[in-house]
Write a protein that binds this DNA or RNA. Structure first.
Lengths: 123, 123
DNA sequence: TTCATTGTTCAAGGATCGTTGAGTAGTTGA
DNA sequence: TCAACTACTCAACGATCCTTGAACAATGAA
């Protein structure tokens, strides 16, 4: 995944409603959800929702397909995976502390390599 | 890591120079780099650089300390780790395909679970 | 064909972001 | 104390983003 795509994806994700939208679609997998239902669950008007859905789709994080009158939106696993992979593998170069943060159990990083953690700035 | 912090971090990361800054600081660890040297390497003027450094620090992705005349900036591993962990664990709920994308070897996702990948939209 | 339903597109306006240049503050050495 | 060095803050400006409401397009039922 190249830099510009990652930047577009990060930019798309850095918005409250759009991040919420990803969280909503993720567990539904390829089945996805119709735009109208998404709007109801998130409490967004049609036009506003459409704007954010388009942003996510353009960033390669979701995909759309028409089903009769509805337009179904579903998560794009490769897009999400590629974005996270770039941060983890390329930016962080698989740093053990960062990897430990992702290991689901809180505090693992401190247990594994506390000396590698940046100390809080004393001000 | 709570939602608003993650949003701030993603917003901070979704900018060319700031992502480059993170990539520059990551391998240096706690040693970090002086603001002036960062500016030289990235080709940024003092004021512009300061603006972006402040954005990253406020988002909890880097930390700063003064060393004589210089101000040293270093990566905040917990901040970066927490942000990526939120995306991977909370948003993606540790989806196997997304995890596979992060496993360093390209194409692992397709090898592991190709049926779970969202097909490219046919248009 | 006509109408209702479902979503998208567009323009306008306000809010926020990023760049620039000038001015300011902290530190060190003479 | 003064000058040089290093870096930050501030205001102004243009660019971009987000919201809103109205108009438009695609689909299916009557």
């Amino acid at each position: 995944m190249d830099r510009s795509k990652v930047l577009a994806a990060l930019s798309a994700l850095s918005h409250e409603h759009r991040l919420e939208l990803i969280r909503l679609l993720m567990p539904l997998g390829d089945a996805g959800l119709a735009a109208g239902e998404i709007g109801q669950k998130l409490g967004l008007g049609a036009s506003r929702l459409s704007f954010h859905l388009a942003a996510l789709e353009q960033a390669g994080l979701i995909s759309s397909r028409r089903a009769s009158r509805n337009v179904i939106y579903a998560i794009d696993l490769a897009g999400m995976g590629g974005t996270i992979a770039y941060l983890l593998n390329d930016c962080c170069r698989d740093h053990p502390v960062v990897l430990a943060c992702c290991d689901r159990s809180d505090g693992v990083a401190r247990a594994v390599a506390p000396e590698l953690l940046t100390p809080a700035p004393e001000r």
